[in-house]
Design a protein around this nucleic acid. Structure first.
Lengths: 223, 223
DNA sequence: CTAGCATTCAAACGTTCGTTTGAACCGCTG
DNA sequence: CAGCGGTTCAAACGAACGTTTGAATGCTAG
């Protein structure tokens, strides 16, 4: 329990989490073996089971380490926004949600970028325990942002808002995860790397326009 | 080579492809074993290697079976659109792209739905051979639709268009893949299943609004 | 009827998987 | 210095993996 004992413990844990973050992002959960994971982390094969209990528990730990602070920051940003002016503009609410993710992408050294791409992958992973975990960690954030958008767009039918939030969520996660599809569309230069500020501007204006799109024929058919 | 010989051959192949489609969607490529796959298909364990050569070749066959006709239909829809009026409205171009995917989702019996969800998953799968295959199959479609949108939106900077197409692609793939996130946002009733026509309306108006969003500050910073 | 071919089958191949074990190692406390 | 909890280590566990094999099977053609 002394200082010397605590530090190396967390050192090994952190090395494992960092390696897992990157390898899970690159090869998926099932595609990453404990042997390559521990080799990359520079720890013994048994270290994962010692520190985390199992591979599944490691997966959960990987998500909790980043997701809890990120969602807390999202809620804080929304709180600050609503304290300033109420209700905030839809685009401002969108920025409160996506900004934290995009800033993590810039943090290439810290490994946050690996996590964000892993997260984007995992949204579409139907494995039950993982989905349950993600859902549980996201539920409060979703509820808060849904309430904020309902207030900002009082004329929007609830069902339509749910779908448009779904679309927004999809755009964000895909944008974060599928970096090379941009190159697929245009023979894009690979040096054109993510600039988080610029990308946030692009995304926010795209999403705000979609979110506040006129309600046209959709309403008629939904009724 | 007679009729009797041809039919059961394709029967087994089809059963394998159908089972693979569903299991890959549910558990991923690495998470699906040949044993559960052949068991679900009701064929012998060795049948996959006999008919396809390897697991990787099976994966490729799963994609080619659906993706080739789907992309051909997309191109045909765009051709018909441009024959009618040139240049077509952006929303019409979008519908030509997303319509074929969404109609596949409705085909629950035919298994097209499984494939669409699998496809949505795979867009964010960074495994190199799979990405290469998807990119190769999609490249011509992407080029055609990009050209069509460039003509429909002559005032839009090329770089901005690429990004907005990226966003659109992401929204589509995520919408198709992550069916249950809608329920996460709202305590949505599970019976509220996909109605392809209605979903196409929702998606098209959302995407068209985003695609044609005003160019605001983004242009200033991108220059 | 029989020879030939495509297909199916049960069984086994060697490899790799996640996990467990029990001994060694470490710095600290009494 | 003896002993102890926390940590690391090499080695092994049984199970499951993708793939291969060689014999059986069923249909077709001569």
């Amino acid at each position: 329990m002394t200082l010397r004992a605590v530090k190396p413990q967390h050192e090994t844990r952190t090395r494992i989490l960092d390696a897992a973050e990157e390898l899970f992002m690159l090869h998926g959960f099932e595609g990453t073996s404990m042997r390559q994971l521990t080799a990359k982390a520079g720890v013994n094969l048994a270290a994962v089971n010692y520190h985390f209990g199992s591979k599944d528990a490691l997966i959960e730990a990987v998500f909790r380490r980043r997701l809890d602070p990120m969602n807390a920051a999202r809620l804080a940003a929304l709180d600050a926004l609503e304290a300033a002016n109420r209700p905030p503009a839809p685009e401002a609410i969108i920025r409160a949600f996506i900004g934290e993710s995009l800033r993590m992408v810039e943090d290439a050294k810290g490994g946050g970028r690996n996590f964000i791409r892993l997260l984007g992958r995992t949204y579409t992973d139907p494995a039950k325990p993982i989905r349950a975990l993600i859902g549980q960690l996201y539920a409060p954030v979703m509820a808060r942002f849904k309430a904020a958008l309902e207030q900002a767009l009082p004329q929007m039918p609830a069902e339509e808002l749910v779908w448009r939030m779904h679309f927004m969520f999809g755009t964000l996660s895909y944008t974060l995860a599928a970096t090379d599809t941009v190159q697929l569309i245009a023979g894009c230069k690979p040096e054109d790397r993510y600039d988080a500020r610029l990308l946030e501007d692009r995304l926010a204006s795209f999403l705000a326009a979609g979110l506040t799109a006129p309600l046209k024929s959709v309403v008629r058919k939904a009724a």
